[in-house]
Simulated scan of single mutants.
Amino acid sequence: MSGGLVPAWSVVVILLLAVLAANLPFLNERIFAVGPRRSPKSIWWRFVELSAYALIVALAGRGLESYLGQASALRWEFVAVWVCVMATLAFPGFVWRHLRRGT
C-alpha cells in the first residue's frame, strides 16, 4: 500500500454493510432476522438488534483495517462517531417503520 491509503472497495463494502445492518431491525419482525417472528416487535428489540449489528459491522471494519494494514487506536471519539453514524443510517428504516407505517 503506497501512502497508507485504504483501497476504495473496502470503504464501499463497510458502508453498504452498515446501511443494511442499520435498517435490518426495522424491515422485519423476526428477532435478529432469523429468530422467531414477533408481531409487532417492540422498539427495544429493534434497538438491541441495532446495537448488535453496529458491533458486528465495527468488528468487520476493524478486521478489514487490520488485514489491509496497521489498525489505528480505538478511542472514545471513534465510538461516539460510530454511534452517530449508525443512528443516522438507521433513520430511513425508523421513519418507514414508526412514522410512515404508524406501527
Rank of each mutant, 00 (worst) to 15 (best):
V13M: 03
E29N: 13
V85T: 07
L16I: 11
A8W: 14
V95C: 14
G102A: 07
V19P: 02
L24F: 04
V19D: 01
A18D: 00
R30K: 12
H98S: 12
R100L: 15
L50Y: 02
R97Y: 07
C84E: 14
P40C: 05
N28Q: 14
L59P: 00
M1C: 08
I43F: 15
S51W: 06
V85M: 08
V57N: 01
L68T: 04
N23H: 00
W44L: 14
F26A: 02
A18Y: 00
P36R: 15
I14R: 02
L89K: 04
A52I: 14
G93T: 05
Y67P: 01
A58S: 08
I14W: 03
L20R: 10
L74P: 09
V6Q: 12
H98D: 10
P36V: 15
F47K: 09
P40A: 11
A58K: 01
V81L: 10
L15P: 00
Y67S: 06
A60P: 03
G69Q: 11
A8D: 09
L5K: 13
W9P: 02
S66G: 11
W45S: 11
G4K: 09
L5N: 07
A18H: 02
Y67E: 13
L15A: 05
R37K: 15
L20Y: 12
N23T: 04
A60W: 01
N23D: 04
V19W: 00
P7L: 04
A33Q: 10
V79S: 10
A87W: 10
E77T: 12
A58E: 01
A54L: 02
F32D: 09
M86P: 05
I56L: 14
L68D: 05
S39G: 09
V11K: 11
S42D: 11
S10T: 08
F32Q: 05
V85Y: 06
L5D: 11
H98I: 13
H98F: 15
F26L: 07
V85F: 08
G69H: 05
A90W: 00
M86L: 11
A87T: 12
F78A: 13
L5G: 08
L24V: 05
R37M: 12
A54D: 02
Q70F: 13
